[in-house]
């Protein structure tokens, strides 16, 4: 049995061989918000945070994960502002890549917290591992930049 801490809760899972973290989350723990779109670590739909760092869970062997895992389900409350901004700006259409985008952005926003916002170019570069086929990215970047700015304003 492998012990995982997922969204703050200890879970014991019988991980099979090289089973991916994404498969474990979806099939064993029932956290289907983490999506699988390429299963090769190339698109970002499966992004979760492991020890606070954005990780492609579709190629991350679950057996090697020891730190805290955070998924969209666990983060939804923390990023209510970002989710609302995504909705207001049209930063998602079909929504399939959206959990991955939001989780990736969460790590960026946390890193940015001590600073005064995020630079759009940095957001674009840092989020280029998250493919979106619907929106053309403009609204996603704008939403992340806006929320970073707003949070910086509140924090100051």
């Amino acid at each position: 049995m492998h012990r995982l801490k997922i969204n703050g809760e200890q879970v014991e899972v019988d991980v099979r061989g090289a089973e991916s973290l994404a498969a474990v989350l979806r099939e064993r723990v029932g956290l289907i918000g983490t999506k699988i779109a390429c299963e090769r670590g190339e698109c970002g739909a499966c992004t979760v945070l492991v020890e606070g760092r954005a990780t492609m869970s579709c190629i991350q062997p679950a057996a090697l994960v020891t730190g805290d895992v955070e998924t969209i389900e666990g983060l939804a409350e923390e990023i209510l502002d970002l989710r609302a901004e995504f909705a207001d700006r049209g930063a998602f259409q079909c929504g399939f890549c959206t959990p991955g985008q939001l989780v990736r952005a969460t790590a960026l926003l946390r890193d940015a917290a001590p600073r005064a916002g995020l630079d759009p170019e940095e957001v674009r570069h840092q989020m280029s591992g998250n493919i979106c086929r619907c929106t053309g990215y403009q609204a996603i970047v704008a939403a992340v930049v806006d929320v970073a700015e707003r949070r910086a304003g509140v924090d100051r």
Partner: peptide, 18 residues
């Protein structure tokens, strides 16, 4: 906002494989 925005952004929207 998209009428189902909350579910689309908290991971609870169900796609066929979910």
């Amino acid at each position: 906002r998209p009428h189902d925005w909350a579910a689309r952004t908290d991971g609870s929207t169900l796609f066929a494989a979910d």
